[in-house]
């Protein structure tokens, strides 16, 4: 606070609160729609306050399923999303830790070649190479399973860079001390490097979990079997069905369910989230 200007301070608060309201409006409307019965939601205008059907809708989304994806309950989709998100986050962190370790702590032929090869992945988002990647995955027989959903998205240049950065700040004396004590490379990695980068791993995990959970195009391509649908792409199927038989109360319930896990992760681990975001992007 530089000077005391009550009016400006009041205006600042007012603008932020207004901003928050606008940002939160879509969610509020979702909650309202998810808590009324199907008939009420299709009457115009939508009620302004949440209704009392929330748990009824929750139950029917889990038990009966919604729209085109009728045979699959929202529960199955949530589990699929969770498995995919965890596999992507854990897989990315594991292989990036290993390759960053190799690149920082070993001198070997083609070291820089490998480094650039990893760097290239940074430049090729899945959206721009969907067709050939899809062919590769199909040829490997990885359609409609968790491997096909997660493995092609696991390579990560950003994570490798971040760990490389972290390892470079680890003092050389630690390695010397470890060697004097007779520790081999893997022992040093497991007992010193990994524990030292704990917070970075956690921060990265938060970001990657959200990244994995929110995948859309890739699951859309590699899953044709309804039992493998993820929640984010499942919502798309529901929207398609909505054109004929609007079940907006259930669709909104499902979007709410699709949002809750990543939002909870971001809000509860806010510090790690901000750290992860600023470290991976810069």
């Amino acid at each position: 606070m530089i000077e005391n200007r009550p009016v400006t301070t009041f205006v600042s608060h007012a603008v932020i609160i207004l901003g928050i309201c606008i940002v939160a409006l879509p969610i509020y409307i979702t909650i309202v729609a998810a808590s009324h019965d199907g008939v009420r939601v299709t009457q115009v205008p939508l009620p302004l306050l949440p209704g009392d059907q929330f748990f009824v809708n929750l139950r029917s989304a889990f038990v009966e399923g919604v729209g085109n994806a009728r045979e699959q309950s929202v529960g199955t989709m949530l589990v699929n999303s969770l498995v995919m998100a965890l596999m992507i986050a854990v897989g990315k962190i594991a292989i990036s830790l290993l390759s960053a370790f190799a690149i920082v702590y070993f001198r070997f032929p083609f070291r820089m070649g490998f480094f650039w090869m990893i760097f290239i992945t940074l430049m090729l988002p899945v959206e721009v190479r969907i067709l050939p990647t899809f062919e590769v995955v199909a040829n490997l027989g990885m359609l409609n399973n968790y491997w096909g959903l997660s493995v092609p998205l696991i390579a990560s240049a950003t994570a490798t860079f971040m760990f490389r950065q972290v390892f470079l700040t680890v003092p050389d004396e630690l390695l010397e001390a470890a060697r004097i004590d007779g520790a081999g490379p893997m022992r040093f990695f497991k007992d010193i490097l990994v524990p030292m980068s704990r917070t970075n791993i956690a921060a990265l995990f938060v970001i990657l979990f959200i990244y994995g959970w929110n995948q859309y195009l890739w699951p859309l391509l590699v899953t044709t079997d309804k039992s493998m649908y993820t929640i984010v792409m499942g919502i798309k199927q529901m929207l398609e069905a909505a054109e004929e038989s609007p079940e907006w109360h259930l669709i909104m319930m499902s979007t709410l369910l699709a949002m809750v896990p990543p939002v909870v992760v971001v809000v509860t681990m806010q510090k790690l989230f901000v750290k992860g975001l600023t470290e991976t992007e810069k």
Partner: peptide, 13 residues
């Protein structure tokens, strides 16, 4: 806290 959560919402959602 109240402003950062939309980051976690998937584009399709």
């Amino acid at each position: 806290t109240l402003l950062i959560w939309p980051y976690a919402v998937a584009p399709a959602v």
